[in-house]
Design a protein around this nucleic acid. Structure first.
Length: 782
RNA sequence: GCCCGAAUGGCGGAAUUGGUAUACGCGAGCGACUUAAAAUCGCUUCCCGACAGGGGUAUGGGUUCAAGUCCCAUUUCGGGCACCA
């Protein structure tokens, strides 16, 4: 009689899966397909953490669940490898990012295999592989051709620590998302993707997605559509200022104009005697960090000395400059209506400007209707080395030219010095030979900026369909078969990645390259796993749980996986509890011991009656000695089918923790009543998505396939049910009644009212009775 | 400030459509096995009460025969956005 030795069993099955390429998927007509993926990881040097394990295991449970239901399932895997950590490591140690990345990938792959994931390893992708980024560059060129990749000189977020610009989505509370350093505004010429072109569709289609409401709301708020008008205010002379307002009906109350400090026409507006003061204010505003602007909401501003004419009142109103007006939204200028707008009122009060309680007028009288979005175009150039080179070169006049598609990929050259500087150019500027390129006989200089890593991850789900395709980014037929992705699981990137990938999908659908307009059918957004103290795990706090330690301590991957599914609802944060891991291990151990018991006493029952099961490790195991084995068998059959139903339905609604709990109950039940071989088969099949190694071992020894079991409702209906009797809503009695009697309300009610125990509570007289057949319940109102 | 989400035993959590609150696990206690310990197996475990019974899902109200679940208000915690005109 051997013990449950997870490491031994797991190694055995991982070898088998590797050798047989068990999870390789291919297109196959006639079987429904199912494609699942997690947000592919950035392979850091630290290896997998428990958060990855939760994320990947959710995908794996669903993958195996659908495989066992004999769907044609694709579950690929990949690595998001461009980015700052590898580059910063390279600067620090001199190791090429290419090398570090290779090592990290190898480590991640090894660890993922140790967890027994049902991954089609033949489809592995890596965004820093030239075979991959060649097609990232191709995607860029398609956007460029349609004018959706363009250059613009304007004030950008600049991180002085990382020496690069950042997209809006990458600035969090005025700080860089990567290093946490305060960002600055810097005027630079940069590349953008015109995501705003799709703002309306991105917003309108959110409601049709099977995504968590939380994410849908965040995306809606991020896009932030406002319907309003643009209104022109004439200045003295030939100039004019156009403002955007959502309240054109309040124009009679517009008593002054405010423009942003960065407002483009500011220097032409400002009166000579105010110029010095205005320019000083502008310089100070630009210097102010975003943090300062956010923390200090005290209104500041100066008068420009200029006036405009309110087209509705014909009054001359002053033009001010203030940093509470943002240059990036609307026209960078507003008409201030202090009577209706709190911010304008605050400003008016501080600077003693007139407040007029004017009446409202027809919205369309003085302006042209206009829709505005909070979302800005996506800034995609980065002044860093370790990224996908932008396939552009400049002629002598500085005009950009696309690198011809047949010259892709633009290889990222290997260099010695990765250090960025404040020049606004990446370290690639130092690769003198690489910089030179000839296009149509003309000598040109390459773009030295690289693409935002989010560009690389905006199309990788489609690459999974044909990962080794050398002729196209993705194969049209393969895409049509596998995608859109049925389940996508992640714990981050609610607005950035998940918005960008929707944008690219719509673009490539318009180009005829994709037969769908939304890339992800269902999104599962899982919670974080925190340290046992409830705080975020971090190296500096020393509270990190290493999943590989959990495995190697002897618990094994099955325990780790099952524990992380049992830890709580998948979408909520949870705190690690080492002692509970032991509880899950005990559960799997009990499953194994059932198997061992069955083996030791595997006399076929023949007549369908129960056979007692005794475990090797547990000599005091209870043994069925029922007088009427038939009745026991029916009870067990009911438990079996009840469990099949519960686990199946729970996985369908992503309630993994209760699915595991149901399996635990089943095992407890089998310990009490004994188990038939069929019970062990059902148990192993239901267990397999969570603990695939142990389940495979059980199924092999039981000589069974792994096809997902079906329940039969007929076994769920017992002859008798428990009837609950409430008096005034309080539980007072329980009766065992036959199912037939449950159909007869009069009979049930009479029986209940005639009962002595019930009568103790109904002496004051019965007002009415309510019988609920479905709930098997009678409520007596007295 | 605005928008979401949450609050249930000593702890993580369950209760799927308004119908038996606390499934499952942890922890704790008791017992069996053992020379002993570990492991394993069994039992107990919301609170008050000897029992009868009573109370109980953050707080206060409401709807209902019936509320953890629905409605109103409040408190606390978590997340997102944050001068977007």
């Amino acid at each position: 009689m051997d013990r449950y030795e997870p490491l031994k069993i797991e190694q055995k099955w991982q070898k088998i899966w590797e050798k047989e390429e068990s999870f390789k998927a291919s297109e196959e007509e006639g079987r429904p397909k199912m494609m699942l993926a997690e947000m592919f990881p950035y392979p850091s040097g630290a290896g997998l953490h428990v958060g990855h394990v939760r994320n990947f295991t959710i995908v794996d449970v669903l993958t195996r669940f659908y495989r066992q239901q004999r769907l044609n399932v694709l579950r690929p895997f990949g690595y998001d490898t461009f980015g700052l950590p590898a580059e910063n490591y390279a600067i620090k140690t001199g190791t090429a990012p290419q090398e570090v990345t290779k090592e990290n990938i190898a480590n991640f792959r090894k660890q993922a295999k140790k967890l027994g994931y049902a991954i089609d390893w033949s489809r592995e992708i890596n965004t820093s592989d030239p075979e991959y980024y060649k097609w990232t560059q191709w995607c860029f060129l398609q956007l460029y051709k349609k004018g959706l990749a363009y250059q613009k000189e304007s004030y950008q977020w600049w991180c002085p620590e990382d020496q690069t610009v950042l997209a809006n989505e990458q600035v969090e509370n005025g700080k860089c998302w990567r290093c946490g350093h305060e960002v600055e505004k810097k005027k630079m010429k940069q590349w953008f993707f015109k995501i705003t072109e799709y703002a309306d569709e991105l917003l309108d289609e959110i409601d049709n997605l099977e995504w968590p409401e939380k994410i849908k709301t965040m995306q809606k708020n991020w896009i932030g559509r406002s319907v309003g008008s643009e209104i022109e205010f004439k200045l003295t002379g030939t100039n004019s200022i156009t403002v955007f307002t959502t309240r054109p009906d309040t124009i009679l109350g517009a008593t002054f104009i405010v423009v942003a400090p960065e407002y483009a026409g500011l220097e032409y507006i400002v009166a000579e005697d105010c110029r010095d003061e205005v320019m000083k204010y502008k310089a100070e505003a630009l210097k102010k960090s975003e943090i300062e602007r956010q923390e200090n909401k005290e209104k500041t501003g100066v008068f420009t000395g200029a006036y405009a004419v309110n087209p509705a009142t014909k009054e001359k109103i002053p033009i001010w400059v203030a940093d509470y007006v943002l240059v990036g939204y609307g026209t960078g200028a507003i008409m201030a209506v202090p009577a209706y707008d709190e911010r304008d009122r605050e400003f008016a009060e501080k600077f003693d400007l007139p407040v007029v309680e004017a009446e409202l007028i027809d919205r369309d009288l003085y302006g042209t209707p206009k829709v505005m979005y909070k979302m800005r175009d996506w800034l995609i150039s980065r002044q860093r080395y370790w990224g996908c080179p932008i396939p552009i070169a400049y002629d002598k006049e500085g005009n950009p030219h696309p690198i011809p598609e047949d010259q892709l990929p633009v290889m990222l050259p290997e260099i010695k010095d990765y250090e960025p500087d404040a020049s606004g150019r990446s370290a690639l500027a130092k690769a003198k030979d690489w910089l030179k390129v000839e296009i149509d006989g003309e000598e040109m200089t390459r773009e030295t900026d690289t693409l935002d890593g989010y560009a690389c991850s905006s199309w990788y789900l489609w690459r999974y369909a044909s990962p080794h395709d050398t002729k196209a980014a993705w194969d049209a037929e393969a895409i049509k078969y596998w995608e859109p992705v049925d389940y996508y699981c992640g714990a981050d990137h609610a607005v950035a990645h998940l918005l960008y990938i929707r944008f690219w999908c719509k673009f490539f659908a318009d180009m005829g390259y994709l037969p769908f307009r939304e890339p992800i059918k269902r999104l599962l957004y899982n919670g974080y796993i925190n340290a046992p103290d409830g705080k975020k795990m971090s190296k500096s706090k020393g509270n990190v749980i290493d999943p590989l330690d959990v495995i190697n301590d002897g618990y094994g991957a099955d325990t780790l996986r099952t524990y992380e599914m049992f830890i709580g609802p998948y979408d909520l944060d949870a705190a690690w509890d080492t002692r509970s891991v032991g509880g899950v291990y005990r559960f799997l151990n009990r499953c194994y011991n059932l198997l061992e018991g069955k083996q030791s006493d595997s006399v076929p029952s023949g007549d369908g009656s129960l056979r007692p099961v005794v475990t090797g490790e547990a000599p005091s195991f209870s043994v069925v000695t029922s007088e009427s084995p038939r009745e026991e068998a029916i009870g067990l059959l009911q438990t079996r089918h009840k469990t099949i139903k519960k686990v199946t339905e729970d996985i369908h609604r992503y309630s993994f923790n209760t699915a595991v709990a149901a399996l635990m109950e089943y095992v407890n039940e089998l310990y009490k009543s004994g188990a038939e071989k069929e019970d062990l088969i059902v148990l192993a099949k239901l267990l397999k998505p969570f603990a695939p190694h142990l389940a495979s071992e059980m199924l092999e020894r039981l000589d069974s396939d792994d096809e997902w079991p079906k329940w039969d409702e007929k076994y769920l209906v017992a002859d008798t049910v428990e009837l609950v009797v409430q008096v005034n809503g309080k539980l007072r009695a329980k009766f065992e009644v036959s199912v037939d009697d449950l159909e007869d309300e009069d009979k049930i009610v009479k029986m209940v009212l005639d009962d002595k125990k019930v009568q103790k509570y109904t002496e004051s007289g019965v007002k009415k009775t309510i019988f609920v057949k479905k709930a098997k319940l009678v409520n007596i109102v007295v």
